[in-house]
Amino acid sequence: MSTQKLRKERIDRGIKVRSDGLYALMSLRELSYLTLPRFVLIAGMLSLPFLMPDMYWQRVISIVCIYAILALSFDFLAHYVGLVSLGGAFFIGTGGYVAGILNSYYGIPPVLTVPLAAIIGGAICTLMLLPCLPLKGVYFAIVTLMYPLFMARIIEAFDLFGGTDGLAGIDSFSSAFAEQYLVICTVLIFLFGLRRFVTTDMGLIFTAVMDNDQAVKASGINITKYKALAVFIASSAGCMAGACLTHIYMWSGISQFALDFSILPIAATVIGGAGTLAGPVLGCFILVPVSELLRDFGTLRIVFYASVLVGFILFRSDGIMVFMQRKYEQFERWTKI
């Protein structure tokens, strides 16, 4: 056994340092270093509908994107506002039902129902979550977990909106192409929009609420207002995803309140990297297709799926995104101590 001790040293790559701040404008190389990851993501996502071999996988793309929007909204709420929300299913279900009702009762076309569902659904979710906003951490998580169960049972018990059969015969999007590009663009807009938003002055308020809400109160800022705003942003994203789901399946029903929609985004956030916003999207692009590929194994699927998750939590708990970012920005070498 060698007694020599080695330590891994991480040093920023020269190009990373050179592309910090204004210096990035100096040369094309620095500029492309900065834009390459973003370009790969955008180009990759936009070309996905062409790369997929058949209808089945094209449909998977849409589902991935719907989960990705949910994961984004979870990551934003949990790591930028400090509200750990298990209400993904609540958002999806509310958005899905709003879109379904608008379409089948009032005949509004999908072009309008999706944005309307985002706004109306977001408002409904925010209003219903308003009493829970003073709660923090695990208490908020538990309450938000109750909401989808509660909504599903109410619809079932009072036989509202078609009861257990749900609302069938809802219009689909005009083409598979329109459907995929709508969800892909929504993911991209929310991803880059939120990334920009959290660094603005108003975005800082959210981080401050997460860090220390007493100090925000002492600064003369109404924290309930900002928490409600954050919940509105996150829930309208979720409701928009739900509306897309309704139109994709041409049906909305109580299975849209299924807890999958609450749990999978969290798993994706863990795998992708918490607090990176891009990470959860990446996580969805891994988890959902993996779960599709494992369909042949029947019920064993869950075992594989769970092993992947446990593996990630044990060995790469900071997430793929953080890992990749480190590799992109720094190099490592062994040094003697």
Binding site: D201, L204, I205, T207, A208, D211, V216, G220, I221
Partner: peptide, 16 residues
């Protein structure tokens, strides 16, 4: 706000 740089701590009261 421990996760922010010192000057960004003041952005919050200045936003009130």
């Amino acid at each position: 706000y421990y996760s922010l740089p010192a000057y960004k701590n003041l952005v919050i009261p200045l936003f009130s």
